[in-house]
């Protein structure tokens, strides 16, 4: 709602809450970007920075909680204002989880970087770029209160799931080719899963934005494309 509150301090507090969410989104996005970058460049130092940066995200979530609690207690927000405060609480916890998962990617990157390179990580880089773009768009949708844009984010989780499934197959194949690939590929499986999970959290964020703007959740059932739980790759039988 574009109109200002009669009490300006109320607007200031709601804007501060929005700013914190935007900051959290920006941080989660750059953590994921840096983690994937560190993985592709085998840069343990950058990965260590990502791990350390997660503290800032945790701290921001606490600040959102404090602000939201103060708003609820002192302003008793209603209607769109109430939905904004509830959305901020839920979105901040999804973004904080997204940051944790990016941190996990960075931790495994440190381990992977210690071993000699064995497998290409292009698939992971693509998956990371896709999810990173979704975080960015979701935060844009939040700031602009754009439910349609949030619905775009919400709908394209299928693509993330499809990429994750194909990565899963690829990594299984590498492992079967040479047992020496198992350690790095096992780590990469977790990396892929972590990024896919970030995508799920961003889907939640998108749902919250739709609820914030429209007062109801997206209506249609989202089509789930993650086939990795049912995926198997059989070894070739040796002739003779």
């Amino acid at each position: 709602m574009a109109q200002q509150h009669i009490v300006k301090a109320f607007d200031d507090q709601l804007n501060a809450l929005d700013a914190k969410i935007a900051e959290m989104g920006g941080l989660a996005e750059s953590m994921l970007a840096d983690a994937v970058d560190a993985l592709s460049k085998r840069d343990a130092e950058l990965a260590a920075e990502v791990v350390a940066g997660d503290r800032k995200l945790d701290q921001l979530e606490e600040e959102v909680n404090t602000l939201a609690m103060r708003l609820l207690a002192l302003r008793q927000p209603t209607a769109g204002d109430l939905r904004a405060v509830i959305a901020a609480l839920k979105i901040s916890s999804d973004l904080e989880r997204a940051g944790d998962l990016a941190k996990n990617v960075a931790k495994r990157t440190i381990t992977i970087a210690k071993a000699p390179p064995v497998t290409p990580v292009t698939g992971i880089v693509n998956l990371g770029a896709l999810v990173q773009g979704r975080i960015h768009t979701a935060i844009d949708a939040f700031v602009a209160r754009d439910a349609k844009l949030a619905m775009d984010v919400w709908s394209c989780d299928e693509e993330v799931d499809q990429l994750h499934t194909s990565l899963f197959r690829e990594l299984l194949t590498y492992m079967m080719e040479d047992p020496r690939n198992i350690t790095p590929c096992a780590h990469l499986l977790f990396v892929a899963k972590n990024i896919e999970r970030i995508g799920d959290h961003i889907t939640n964020v998108a749902e919250r934005i739709v609820f914030l703007v429209r007062g109801k959740l997206p209506e249609r059932e989202r089509h789930k494309e993650d086939e990795s739980p049912y995926t198997e790759v059989r070894p070739f039988k040796k002739e003779g």
Binding site: Q3, F10, P77, A79
Partner: peptide
């Protein structure tokens, strides 16, 4: 009415946006 009012005037009034 207090979580998802339909009319903008209701929303404006209950959220303290006009007098």
């Amino acid at each position: 009415i207090f979580t998802t009012p339909r009319d903008e005037r209701t929303e404006g009034y209950i959220t303290g946006r006009f007098g």
